[in-house]
Every structure is written in structure tokens, then in C-alpha cells.
Nucleic acid binder design. Structure first.
Lengths: 115, 115
DNA sequence: GGTTCATTTAACCGATACGTTCAATACAGA
DNA sequence: TCTGTATTGAACGTATCGGTTAAATGAACC
């Protein structure tokens, strides 16, 4: 695999087991044993998946006694989401109209004092 | 690699050459030779990258004489974008407030007659 | 110190990824 | 039909992936 972050992150998402692990981690931190429970897969296999996710920056690990709970690091997803956003205008018809609208507001009656 | 579409699509994006090819295709259709030009890579290599992108549904190929121009199929990106959107609330602070707002509008003063 | 539990490391395996080179195919045009 | 151009196919090498089993590590508990 490549060394650039985006490649590592997309590659990490290219596996259903890893995507399921990330989904599980939206419910909160979890240990390897807990994460492995839904899968018909050995613990070392899950441990390796976690290593892939960690190298991609998508999760972090902590340490409590003999447990190494995994925690979601959602900021790492931002880059991928932004990359895809550049293409939204090519599939989302209504996005073109939104762009037009935003351009108009930006230019003309600039009442963007919100927040 | 897995056989589910999302895995194939994320895997396709996990390579900088393929991402560059997709970026190029936002400018319009292009032949293999044109697509290969920026890369220090053999033509068969680029041809293989196109096959990966095509299997993922991210591009399509047509046929004009001996040319097989590639065309962006942006709809195939929707699934990935939606998958990532589920996680936006975990990295985007302002998204929580937006959610609250939308929930409120949905419930109470429903003046959503636009469009 | 010995036991148990959680996790990782090591070694291995078959399949796939990504690149190469050389040959084959397909079409256009003189 | 011959030539040139565009593209793909076949065969190959090397590295990585995703899984396994068995052993090692580390911490808690008696």
C-alpha cells in the first residue's frame, strides 16, 4: 500500500470487518474481545485489523491493565469526506443550484452574519 | 479484495494513481494514452487501473475506432459519501447543532414548502 | 510463585495488488 | 495488404493482505 494518509485511510475502509468495527466504535470504546465477538474470526485477526485502522489514524488505543480499548478518531475521516465532496457536484443535481445560490449570496447581498 | 460494492469502491480510491485518474476525468472523457501521460508508468499498468475503476463502477468505457475512452460515473461515489456522512457528526461540532435545528424544523413550524 | 485472562508476536499460507516486458488484437488509412 | 496507432492479454516477480495456529507477553489475583 501507499504511504500517503488518504491511501491508507481508503484502504482501511475497503474491508467490511473494519467498517463494522468502526461502526461499533461509534457506541463507545471497546476492547479487542468485545470487538471480536460478532465475527467468526480469531483474535489475532481482529488485532491486525485494529492495527490497520490505527496506522490509518482512524482509531487510537489506550491502556488499562491488560486491556487496550480502541477509540474512534473521527477527525481522520475528514480528509476522505472532503475528497469525495469535490465530486458531489457531478452526481448531485441539486448541488449545482446550491453552488449558484452560494455564489450569489457571497457576491451580492452579503447578509452572512450568522454564527 | 471483498466482493461488496463499497469495499471495491474504497479499494479503488486507495491508490493515488487511480484518484488522479478520476480527478482528470472530471475534465471530460479521456483515452488510455491521455490518462497515462502524467505518469511514469507503462500503458498496461494504466489499463489495469482503469479495469479496477470500471469494476468498482466508478468509470465506464466506450468504444470509438481503436480508442476506448473512459468516462467518470460519479453516481458510484454516492454510497461511499453516504457511509462517511454517518460519521460526520463525530468530527463536525457544528453538525450537532444543525441536527438539532433540522429536528426542530421537522417537528414544529414546518414551512418546508421550498422546492 | 502460579494461574488466569487479554492481547500481541511469529511463522506460515494462499490469494491478490501493482508493476514490468513482450506479444496479440483491433482498427484506420495509404 | 501493409503500416502505424491504441489498447489489452499473458506471463512473470515481488510485496502486501487477510486469515490461521501456537507461543510469548503483560497485568491482576490468589
Amino acid at each position: 500500500m501507499q504511504t500517503d494518509p488518504l491511501s491508507a485511510q481508503f484502504a482501511a475502509l475497503a474491508d467490511p470487518t473494519r467498517r463494522a468495527i468502526l461502526a461499533r466504535l461509534t457506541q463507545g470504546e471497546a476492547t479487542v474481545n468485545e470487538l471480536a465477538e460478532p465475527f467468526e474470526m480469531s483474535l489475532p485477526a481482529v488485532s491486525k485489523h485494529l492495527k490497520v485502522l490505527e496506522k490509518a489514524g482512524l482509531i487510537s488505543r489506550s491502556k488499562e491493565a491488560q486491556w487496550r480499548p480502541a477509540k474512534l478518531e473521527p477527525m481522520a475521516m475528514k480528509g476522505m469526506a472532503e475528497w469525495l465532496e469535490h465530486y458531489r457536484r457531478y452526481w448531485d443535481k441539486s448541488f449545482d443550484r446550491l453552488e449558484d445560490y452560494l455564489r450569489k449570496v457571497q457576491k451580492g447581498n452579503d447578509d452572512g452574519k450568522r454564527n
